[in-house]
Amino acid sequence: MFPRLNPLTTLTAAVAVLVMTTAAASWAVSLTVAVGAVLLSAAGGTLRRVLVASAAIIVPFWLSLLVIHGLFFPEGRTVLASWGPARVTAEGLSFALEMGLRTAAFVLVLMVFSFSVRVPELVAALTARRVPPQVGYVLASTLLLAPLVAARLEKVRQAQESRGLVVGRGIGSRAAAIRLQMVPLVLGLVHDAGIRAQALDARGFRSAGPRTSYTEARDSAAQAAFRLVAILLALAAVGWRIVESLSAGSLAALSLSGGGPG
C-alpha cells in the first residue's frame, strides 16, 4: 500500500506523527502510535523485519531506562523498595515507562518508514525538488548502509570462522570476536568505498549540470494537500505544547518533552 504514495508523503507523515507524539508527551498517545505503526507494518507485509530491527534498538534502551530511572530517580517520592542508594520509586517507574513507550513509538515509526520507502523513489522525489544529488546519494547510501555493513560483517565472520575462530555463547567470547572483526570490517568498507568512488566518477556522478530521474516519483494534489496539513498539525502541536508549558510556568517540562520548535 505504501509504494503508491510519494515517498515525501510517507516521510512527512512519519515526521509529523513523531513531532505530535513528542508534543503530546503522554504514554497513551505513544502507545497508540506504536500500535498503529505495528498494524501498518503488518498491513504492508514488513512486520517481521520491522519488529526485529526495532527490538534490536528498543530492548537495550528499555533496560538502561529501567536501571537508570527505575532505580535512581532523584525526584521520586513514593518509595516502593530500596537497597542502599537504589530506590525504586513510583515516579521513576512511570517516567521510565513513558520514555520507553515514546522511544518505542519513535523507533517503530521510523522503521516502518525505512522498510516501506523505495530508496530510489525517495532520491527521485528529492531530485525533483532540486535537492543536490550528493545529498540524495548520501541519504540513499545511509538508508542502504545497514544491509551493506551487515553483509560485509557476515563475510568477515565466515572467513574468520573458516580459519578456526570459535565464537562461544559467552559475552567475553563475543566481545573478543567483535574486536577481531571491527578492523577488517572498517578497512573492507573503506576499500569498497574507494573503488565505488572511481565507478561513480566514471558514471558522471560529479558532473555539475542539471539531473533528471529515471524513477518517476508519483505525486498528486491530494498528497500535496495532505503533506501541508500534516506539517501544519505538527506545528500546531508544537505551538500548543509551548503555550501550555509556559502557562504552567515549567521550563523544565519544555526542555524535557516539548522539543525545539525548529
Binding site: R203, G204, F205, G209, T212, S213, Y214, E216
Partner: peptide
C-alpha cells in the same frame, strides 16, 4: 544512472 547524471530527459 549515468544518463540521470547527465540530465537526459526521461
Amino acid at each position: 544512472f549515468s544518463l540521470e547524471n547527465r540530465g537526459v530527459p526521461r
